[in-house]
């Protein structure tokens, strides 16, 4: 029994064999599991513990250390706005403000339709093309506040396109 899709389960099966020690698969496994399930649920903790062969406490000890791992569901598109120094100097906070306005949510908020969540994050390594954000794993750089609605619309459209036909 697994929580995961056959594809992810197969990937995780291979992942533990990739390293000299199984445990090295822990951090990637948590991240890949979150990518599919949406967050690190108790069930994810239990399955990961069993796959690696460590205690659930041990999984939690590690999982809670890494800031990309979350323990509550986020939106389908998690908007992460960098406000660290390079972005801040070039208007990162204005971008963040605009997302707050457009989405009507604040830090770690989720829109009622579950489509978007918003997070103010630390440096994401795009300093020379600031200000920048990440939506899930996609980067958007050299932003201006006025570009924000377009980005949101783009993901809305993507969600519609990906939605199963009623």
């Amino acid at each position: 029994m697994t929580l995961f899709s056959p594809r992810l389960a197969a990937r995780l099966d291979a992942l533990v064999e990739k390293y000299p020690l199984r445990r090295s698969a822990l951090v990637p496994m948590l991240l890949y599991a979150q990518d599919e399930i949406g967050y690190i649920s108790d069930a994810v903790v239990a399955e990961v513990a069993q796959r690696i062969g460590i205690t659930e406490l041990d999984v939690r000890n590690v999982a809670t250390y890494y800031s990309m791992l979350r323990f509550k569901p986020a939106g389908k598109y998690n908007v992460q706005v960098c406000t660290n120094i390079s972005c801040m100097l070039r208007g990162g906070y204005e971008i963040y403000e605009r997302f707050k306005e457009e989405l009507g949510i604040g830090h770690k908020g989720v829109t009622p339709d579950g489509l978007f969540s918003l997070e103010e994050v630390e440096c994401i390594g795009v300093c020379c093309w600031a200000p920048a954000i990440q939506v899930n794993y996609d980067f958007h750089d050299e932003l201006k506040p006025d570009l924000v609605p377009g980005i949101i619309d783009g993901y809305r459209g993507k969600a519609v396109a990906e939605a199963p036909h009623a």
Binding site: N84, I85, S86, E122, C123, G125, V126, C127, C128, W129
Partner: peptide, 11 residues
């Protein structure tokens, strides 16, 4: 693990 704010060369 390039993470120092202001740094994006490894990217």
């Amino acid at each position: 693990d390039e993470s120092e704010p202001g740094t994006c060369k490894d990217h």
